[in-house]
Amino acid sequence: MDEQDFIRLNEYLDDELDAQTRAALEQQLLGDPAMQADLDSLRATVALLQQLETVPVPRSFTLDPAQYGRKQGFFDRLAALIGPAPTAALSGLAAAAAAFVLVVSGAFLLPATETNSVFAPAADTLSSQAEESDTVIVTQSSPPEEDMMEAESAEGPRDDSLEDEADMGAASDDEAADEAPEEDGEAASVPESAEPEATPPASVGTEEPSIAQNRQLTPTPLPTPDVLIVPDEPELESNRILLPAAGLVAAIIGVIVFAVVRQRL
């Protein structure tokens, strides 16, 4: 007898066969004494197993309410006070409040990322002051790590840095004149904090000339423009990520608060 026949015998014994298969097997059993003997031995084995007596539990397995019971908190008392009927209304109210918070936070945060309103006035101020002080602003994207300190100083309080840089430029006019030929035709006087390999200007200093334009300015004899290196606002780039992330975090917190309130109620 193969395994499939033995499985079918067990199914027959446990009344798990459909009527047609059961009838066919009974016909087979009539002409197969060995199969009938297997069935009888299986039946006796199952009967023995069913004789195994139930063992009484040695102790109670109930849990200690002091250890596992949930303490009555504010929401429990509130739910008991208001009863089950207004629970749905309160849940809906909580959902509406959560949605309101999400919409308001989204409306507040998203425009700031779109218009760069935080940084645009600073850039305009820089441009106008640069024009007044005859300073050329060169944008620099991704300053090298070793120059991050200087770059950060350039990104500090815009007015102060502008003045500082202008002072530096004025103080180093003579030096710049001497160093200019050594910098492959770099006409502008560049403080040491600036890299000559500055990339073309990015979005912020929209009205400032590019490096190529600066190089075209090289032959200009007087006045020698002071070049102010303004990094390409890495803070702005990071805020484009951080502000939507903050909105997302606010949304998640709102959903969690709503879920907790709903669960408690």
């Binding site: 195994l52 139930t54 063992v55 009484p56 539990v57 040695p58 109670s60 397995f61 109930t62 849990l63 200690d64 309410p65 596992y68 019971g69 949930r70």
Partner: peptide, 29 residues
């Protein structure tokens, strides 16, 4: 909802069968 007494009523109802299954599988009390 955190009602331990309600859960204990379920425990008392099923603990005999649960323990016996464990006893026959594990083989010792």
């Amino acid at each position: 909802r955190g009602d331990v007494e309600a859960y204990n009523a379920l425990v008392l109802h099923y603990q005999n069968q649960v323990y016996n299954v464990a006893y026959r599988i594990m083989g010792d009390p």
